[in-house]
Simulated scan of single mutants.
Amino acid sequence: MTSLRRRLLVFAAAVLLLAGLGTGLVLKAAARADRANQPQSGGPAVSSGKLTLDQKNRLTFVNGASGPHRTAVASVASANPGGGRTASDLKCARFYAAAGTGVCLQSDPGVLKQSNKALLLDADLRTEKTFPLAGTPSRARVSPSGRFAAWTVFVSGESYASAFFSTRTSILDTRTMKLIPSLETFSITLDGKSYKAADVNFWGVTFAADDDTFYATLNTANKTYLVRGSISGESVTTLTENVECPSLSPDGTRIAFKKRVLSRTDLWREYVLDLDTLRETPLAERHSVDDQATWLDDDTLAYALPTDGDVDSSDLWSVPADGSGSPRLLIAGASSPAPL
C-alpha cells in the first residue's frame, strides 16, 4: 500500500469516526430534550394561560418541570407558590421583571452555532426589541421602576467556578433604548484610587430605586468586590471584598450575596450585607448557592438549587433574610423568580 493511499484511508476513517460521534451527540441531545418534554407523573400542574407582568400578588419564574412547558415563563399565586402554575408561550434561559417590564435571555444551541439574545418585553410579554448576546446567558435584572434592564453573559467559560472565564455585563435604558454594551468601559475607583486592568470582569447587576445607582460584582486580580455604580456618571467604586451576585433589598438597605467560603473552590454561602455598617449575616442555607438571590419582600429571599439527582433542573428555595429559621422549598422545578 502506497504512503498516499494509507494516508487517504486514515483520513477517511477519521471522518467517519467524527461523523459517528457527531451523530451520537445529536441523538443523545435529542433524547434528553424529548425526556424533558414528557410530563412526569406526580409533577406540578402546569397549564397554558394568560400571563401579564402587571398582575398583582403573583410570582413569575422559568418553569423547569418536565413537559411541553419546560423553560416557559410561568407564574403562581404568591400566597400559594406550590399550587398550579400558569405557563406562557415565552421560553427563556433567564428571566426577570419589574413594573410591567421584563427581560428574557434566550439561548438556542443550533446545529452549527449557538444563538443567544435578550428580549425586552412589555407587560403582555410582547417583544419590544431584541439584542444579540455575546455569550451564554447568566444573569438578568430590571430596575424597580422598569426604566433599566441589565444582563450578564459568559463570553468564555461556563460558570463562575471555571478556572478561566470572561463575562460581559450590559445595561439598557428601556425608554431611550440606549445600550451600554459593557460595564468594562466605566471608570473604576478601587480602595480609593483610580484603577485600570485588562482582566476586569463585571456581573450580577442589581438596581436601586433612584434609576441611577446600581450594585454589581467586580472581579480583578483573582479577587471579587462589591461595587456601587452610577449609570449617569459611568463609574463604579468598590465597597468591600468577596461579594458575588448582589441583590438589593426592596428597602435599599441591604445586599444579599453569595460569598466564596473556601479560596479557589466553587463553594459559596448566602449572606446579607448591611450597607451602612458592612456587617455580614450568614443565612440559614448550608448548601452552596450559585445564584443571584431574589428578595420576595424585605424579610425573605428566594434562590435556586440543583434538583437532587438532576443536574439539568433546579428548585426554588426561600430563607429568612436575618439569618434565622431554616430553608424551605418554595417551588419545585423552577428558576429565575421575580415577584410581581
Rank of each mutant, 00 (worst) to 15 (best):
V261P: 03
Q292M: 15
R279L: 13
C245I: 00
G252T: 04
E285V: 15
P250W: 02
S263E: 04
L283P: 09
D291L: 03
C245P: 00
P282C: 10
R269N: 13
D290M: 13
E280S: 14
F257R: 01
L273E: 02
A256E: 00
L248C: 09
D276T: 15
R260D: 00
V272A: 13
T277C: 08
V272K: 07
H287S: 13
R269F: 05
L267W: 07
A284S: 15
K258L: 03
Y271W: 14
P250Y: 05
S288A: 14
K259V: 01
Q292Y: 06
D251A: 06
V289Q: 04
L248Q: 06
R269G: 15
G252L: 06
L278D: 02
P246Q: 08
P282W: 08
G252E: 02
D266W: 05
T281K: 08
D291I: 00
Q292T: 13
L278G: 08
I255C: 01
V261W: 01
R279C: 05
E280H: 13
R260G: 07
Y271V: 06
C245N: 07
L283D: 02
L248T: 09
R260N: 08
S247Y: 03
R279N: 12
K259G: 03
E270K: 09
R264L: 10
H287M: 08
I255K: 04
P246N: 06
R269E: 07
W268T: 10
K258I: 05
T277V: 09
L283S: 12
D291V: 03
C245W: 00
C245Q: 02
T277E: 04
D266T: 08
K259A: 12
D251M: 07
C245K: 05
V289E: 00
K259M: 10
D291P: 05
L248Y: 03
Q292H: 12
R269L: 12
V289W: 01
A256R: 04
F257G: 05
E270C: 12
V261F: 04
C245E: 00
I255P: 01
